[in-house]
Design a protein around this nucleic acid. Structure first.
Lengths: 275, 275
DNA sequence: TGGGCGCGTTGCATAAGGTGAAACACGCTG
DNA sequence: CAGCGTGTTTCACCTTATGCAACGCGCCCA
């Protein structure tokens, strides 16, 4: 592979440097690439666009970071799990054009839900800022967490609840939680309300941020693998109107993502209008 | 990932097409790429050189085919096994400059050794043509096969012998085989000689092709993973001289490949003078 | 509140360098 | 030996990659 007498293609060479750099760091901003590779940002931008078009990298909505596309490679640890953000991203972008409020994509962890992606940067409103990627959400006090708990199978739910149960849990409080989840299941979507007494991560923050939120689970092959929510300021009393206006879009988005994950098909929505 | 207002980099775009094409087909010739992508061969050549320099593809000595570099990806089925050819290739190239005769890299299969790579195309001589990639070699009648049988552990050896044993095996013939292998082990390298009575794939061909051959096992982490041989015309009676002149180079090459495989370091020999 | 800074984005003039036709080299086949 | 198919090299043209410069925007700090 060391043929002489023939020049290399500089544009390709530098483009590959970018690809390799993106793959090396798992997520990287334009500026980081700029100072790592010493290339003008304008040039990088066009290279990144090209790499993206070829499906080798994708850009996270949440923070604009560039991430490598995980080929059929990552069979190791829950391939699909790591793909979810990539698959969901374009659907969430589409959703942002139909609904006036931002969404968050969350996946379950041991004792919390973790934010993998959000379209909130696409909204101009200051109030739209939701937590960045990596933020941990309470299973108990957020719509996102409740949507997952309500959708997962009994065994998993019991395990999670057991992890969160305070030593001094008030009698009957656990039954309250189960009731809330049962209602959520019946209703088909999750809310922050009603309140629940157990302490859990940043409970106070959630209760005071003056927002309302609804969430649904993303199902793939019969099991919930993630959740997607919608958050809006609690100012108006027209909550019911807001909710029912957007609930269907949210559901459809969740279903579309679930189908895409199950099919492992990435990028499909780029072509046609997904959702 | 669908930014507008910015053009894509054509050179990168087309280069990536080449990369993707090489990855899609597992091995591809220049001509195939030419008619698949409709690009001039001159252009392809420079792109392939660039991709190779970046470690994304490599060129097999045996047939000049371009193969994708298997990143940390292929953890699935014996990653190292599939890497061997790629890792060994540069060492075999180096060997071809030191020794006047071609070599073959073989790996064990159920009932035969398979050729993964050969440097024979680097030799001008017509007589140098060894089998192409994929050819199946007898465990019993080739130096390559005997080198592996002699080096592998007893359990594996028994299993292979059991597979090859003819129903009407002459009494004592199996003992003869074991004696041959024991001698091979003591000697440190394998030969085609002495003959052995069992029939096995293309036995007659091997016996009549007027060549001599010696082989050694490539060891990684204490176990043989492949073999490398040296083949030359049997014309001269100076066989002993030929052998002893090149035996050390063959051994060193085998050791270097074994070390490289164990370290999973690809491409190292490209820089310095390996072996 | 407003000014400044950091980061991403866009436009554009310039020449760097990607491109492919053509010619060459080589082996294989008929 | 001629002719074909394949890989390789060369080179002059002009597409196109490039990076400077300017802009927009959000964020931080005074």
């Amino acid at each position: 592979m060391l043929e002489r007498k023939v020049k290399t293609v500089r544009a390709l060479e530098r483009g590959l440097d970018v690809l390799i750099e993106v793959q090396a760091r798992r997520a990287v901003s334009l500026h980081e690439l700029h100072q790592a590779l010493q290339l003008p940002k304008a040039t990088l931008l066009r290279m990144l666009l090209t790499l993206g078009r070829k499906g080798l990298i994708w850009q996270r909505l949440a923070d604009g970071a560039y991430l490598p596309h995980l080929g059929p490679a990552a069979r190791g640890t829950g391939s699909a799990v790591e793909h979810i953000a990539e698959i969901a991203s374009p659907y969430m972008k589409a959703l942002s054009t139909k609904v006036a409020w931002p969404s968050v994509l969350g996946v379950p962890r041991l004792d919390h839900m973790e934010i993998l992606e959000t379209n909130s940067p696409l909204f101009r409103l200051d109030s739209a800022i939701l937590g960045p990627v990596g933020v941990k959400l309470s299973y108990i006090h957020t719509a996102t967490g409740r949507a997952y708990l309500a959708a997962c199978d009994e065994q998993e739910r019991e395990a999670i609840i057991a992890r969160l149960r305070p030593k001094d849990a008030a009698p009957g409080s656990e039954d309250d939680l189960r009731t809330i989840l049962a209602e959520t299941r019946d209703r088909g979507y999750a809310l922050r309300e009603p309140l629940h007494p157990w302490p859990d991560r940043s409970k106070q923050l959630v209760l005071r941020d003056g927002r309302r939120s609804m969430a649904v689970a993303i199902m793939a092959n019969g099991a919930p693998i993630a959740t997607i929510n919608l958050t809006w300021p609690a100012k108006r009393g027209t909550d019911e109107a807001v909710m029912h206006r957007h609930l269907e879009a949210l559901h459809q988005t969740a279903q579309a993502i679930g189908r895409a994950v199950a099919t492992q098909s990435v990028g499909a929505p780029l072509a046609g209008n997904a959702v």
